[in-house]
């Protein structure tokens, strides 16, 4: 029972500290889930993000469910997902009830200008960590380059890119093992 509470509270903290979309959750996940609790590895986190982007639903919920399940099964997944959503539920309800013009206050706008700069820096730092664990060879460097350009410059859908990269992984590995056999 205690692990479910730990999962809920950990993900509650992560949800309360995530500003923006599912991507801005990555620095918190690396800190809390990979470094502090060692529930999943950096590479597994990359797997979950890849799948979360091509399946229905909010990326943050998908990733939380994956990690919760990995740690302690179906209930773990559910508790982690509920934890990540909980702070939103509380904060947004308060704002919707009492502070409809919340976003118009100058002090809030200034604070969040600062926060958005920080989110950039943190994502940059996270990508660097992820890079070390996922871009590990010539072929993975090529995949990274292709996907980055196709996504950032040509806005190709992540679903297509993930499907192609998965196929590329299978083809590259199959060819590599064939080459070894020949030698």
């Amino acid at each position: 029972m205690k692990i479910y509470l730990t999962l809920f509270l950990t993900f509650m903290r992560i949800g309360g500290l995530t500003f923006g979309g599912g991507y801005s959750m990555l620095p918190m996940l690396q800190r809390e889930i990979v470094e502090r609790h060692s529930w999943v590895t950096e590479s597994e986190l990359a797997d979950y993000y890849a799948i979360s982007q091509c399946t229905p639903g909010v990326i943050a919920i998908n990733t939380a469910t994956f990690i919760g399940f990995k740690k302690s099964g179906v209930l773990g997944g559910i508790f982690a997902a509920l934890g990540v959503a909980f702070p939103s539920l509380v904060i947004i309800t308060i704002i919707a009830a009492f502070l409809q013009n919340f976003a118009d206050y100058a002090i809030i706008q200034h604070a969040f200008s600062g926060v958005s700069v920080c989110v950039c820096v943190l994502i940059f730092d996270s990508v660097r960590k992820l890079w070390k664990n996922t871009v590990i060879s010539k072929s993975t460097t090529v995949i990274f380059g292709f996907v980055f350009i196709l996504s950032a410059v040509f806005s190709i859908s992540p679903i297509i890119l993930v499907a192609l990269s998965g196929a590329a992984g299978v083809i590259i590995k199959t060819l590599e093992s064939k080459n070894k056999e020949v030698k």
Binding site: Y23, I51, S126, T140, F144
Partner: peptide, 11 residues
């Protein structure tokens, strides 16, 4: 093996 670098690139 293919998905991981793609995931990093998407982020």
């Amino acid at each position: 093996y293919g998905l991981r670098p793609a995931s990093t690139a998407l982020i």
